[in-house]
Write a protein that binds this DNA or RNA. Structure first.
Length: 494
RNA sequence: GGCCCGUUCGUCUAGCGGUUAGGACACCGCCCUCUCAAGGCGGAGAUCACGGGUUCGAAUCCCGUACGGGCUACCA
């Protein structure tokens, strides 16, 4: 194949970059990079009602967050621009001239109401096979005169007479064939002169010399229509590849009901871009059926359309969570501190300056946390006890651990030992507390859980001895005192 | 209604005529262990949607049926 590889991702800015779109973008990007081609980003904003500039920006942000770079498009230039469909009105008009000259477009004067009546009638009778082509029968000279006179009209594609089928080979699903009589003389240009999606997208794909059209399954049925336009334009038909849909946990089309659907929502919930990219890449594509961890570079090296699955996939957040945890652990202490700091600042637990000053301390904290979370938004609740002045003890934990047995005695004894050790560090702390159970004749667990609740406020926390060191002697002792006192108050012993 | 697509453990998938149907997540058990995780080891889980063919042999090829989905707009 000698034609250069050019692929495009063409989102409609009617919303943010959602999961399905992101995967389409990833596959397009990966294909372009793998084949040494060009990745074009085009904004299909032909729907002025729902398209917004903010959405365009959000889409660009989302793509960049995933680490996908485009060679042509908004904020990237390119020789085939502009890359916003709303800026290409003259292009579509010019292409319409080509269509007319080829005898493949004609004006239609039917009103929306008339069309509805026809449709209803045909459906009632049985099969509906598209527009009945009334206006196609109008003598061209007459039609031209009516157009010149300013009569409202749309321009329709003229499906070639005698054509029996439109066929193509989909790179994912194989040979596709559609009977031509099921194809409509669909609208190319609306009454107001704006192009429809199926028309604009073909004009652009043709003019931008797109070699591979990789897009969602929902466009599969539109493809034969679009091929007819490519032909009418006298342009070579690109290779098509239709991706299966991504569904929600209930097997239904992904929507807001299924929780986060925009890529940026995942970012805000504490997912790492590497994890989202990895997960999405493998949702519908596989390297070998064994590999579960895959990087952007690996994708670039090995992506191919023939290993894209053809059946729809359900988004499984459990697996995404697991994968995110793996990437969090791969961050390393420095990387994790970098991720953690802004979240702590945002939560008001510290300041940028303070965090920088306590860098050694932060580096000690990092592995204790990174090992036990799946999402970054779990950090703040887990480490809050280290930052606050007044600790609130979880009532359930209090009732279960501190109210039971001789907690006050345990806490007081622990306090005494911890006050006496020379250096308030993990190892001596552990040595001191490990001696306690035997001294008091209780199980180790009783001691550790009592101290844990007193110091962290909950029964579940990062490792105890490390936590004590990080908290510091002063605060630790104060909390043990406070808890011991609280126990006496709440549960006076006979 | 018409046209088109899809159907392998709960989920994502491997498989492309001969396999004990493999892997991952989730689940269960054991080990490790100060809680929770992480990690290690092991287990359970798929009559390959169903029914017919073709073949010595079918998850793999063909045809039907069912179920799910898409398109059928002057939405994209």
């Amino acid at each position: 194949m000698s034609t250069p590889v050019r692929v495009r991702f063409a989102p409609s800015p009617t919303g943010h970059l959602h999961i399905g779109g992101a995967r389409t973008a990833i596959y397009n990007w990966a294909l372009a990079r793998h084949l040494g081609g060009t990745f074009v980003l085009r904004i299909d904003d032909t729907d002025p009602e729902r398209s917004t500039d903010e959405n365009v920006l959000a889409i660009l942000r989302g793509l960049r967050w995933l680490g996908l770079d485009w060679d042509e498009g908004p904020e990237a230039d390119g020789a085939f621009g502009p890359y916003f469909q709303t800026q290409r009105a003259d292009t579509y008009l010019a292409a319409l001239k080509t269509m007319k000259a080829a005898g493949r477009a004609y004006p239609c004067f039917c009103t929306t109401e008339q069309l509805e009546v026809k449709r209803d009638a045909m459906r009632a009778k049985g099969g509906y096979a598209g527009y009945d082509r009334t206006c196609r029968a109008i003598d061209p000279a007459t039609a031209a005169a009516r157009v010149a006179a300013g009569e409202p009209h749309v321009w329709r594609l003229s499906v070639p007479e005698g054509r029996t089928e439109v066929a193509f080979d989909d790179a994912i699903r194989g040979h596709m064939s559609f009977p031509a009589d099921a194809l409509d003389d669909f609208v190319l240009v609306r009454t107001d002169g704006t192009p429809t999606y199926n028309y604009a997208t073909v004009v652009d794909d043709a003019l931008m010399e797109i070699s591979h059209v990789v897009r969602g399954d929902d466009h599969l049925s539109n493809t034969p229509r679009q091929i007819l336009v490519f032909e009418a334009l006298g342009h070579e038909v690109p290779i098509f590849a239709h991706l299966p849909m991504i569904l929600g946990a209930d097997g239904k089309r992904l929507s807001k009901r299924h929780g986060a659907t925009s890529v940026e929502a995942y970012r805000d919930e504490g997912y790492l871009p590497e994890a989202v990219l990895n997960y999405l890449a493998l949702l519908g594509w596989s390297l070998d059926g064994e590999t579960t961890m895959i990087t952007r570079d690996m994708l670039r090296e090995s992506f191919s359309l023939d290993r894209v699955s053809s059946n729809p996939a359900i988004l499984d957040t459990d697996k995404l969570d697991w994968m995110n945890g793996v990437y969090i652990r791969e961050l390393g202490v420095d990387g994790f501190v970098e991720r953690m700091t802004p979240l702590l600042v945002e939560a008001g637990l510290t300041t940028v300056e303070e965090a920088a000053a306590k860098r050694a301390w932060m580096l000690k904290l990092a592995p204790l946390v990174s090992e036990r979370i799946k999402r970054l938004d779990e950090i703040v609740p887990m480490v809050r006890f280290l930052f606050v002045e007044d600790l609130e003890i979880d009532p359930t934990a209090f009732a279960k651990v501190l109210k039971a047995g001789n907690a006050a005695e345990v806490l007081t004894a622990a306090r005494g030992l911890l006050a006496a050790i020379p250096a308030f560090e993990t190892t001596p702390i552990e040595e001191a507390l490990r001696a306690l159970p035997e001294q008091l004749g209780v199980k180790a667990k009783v001691v550790f859980q009592a101290v844990r609740v007193a110091v962290t406020g909950t029964t579940v926390s990062p490792p105890l001895f490390e936590s004590l060191e990080l908290l510091g002697r002063e605060k630790s002792l104060a909390r043990l005192d406070a808890a011991a006192a609280g126990v006496d108050e709440a549960a006076p012993r006979p």
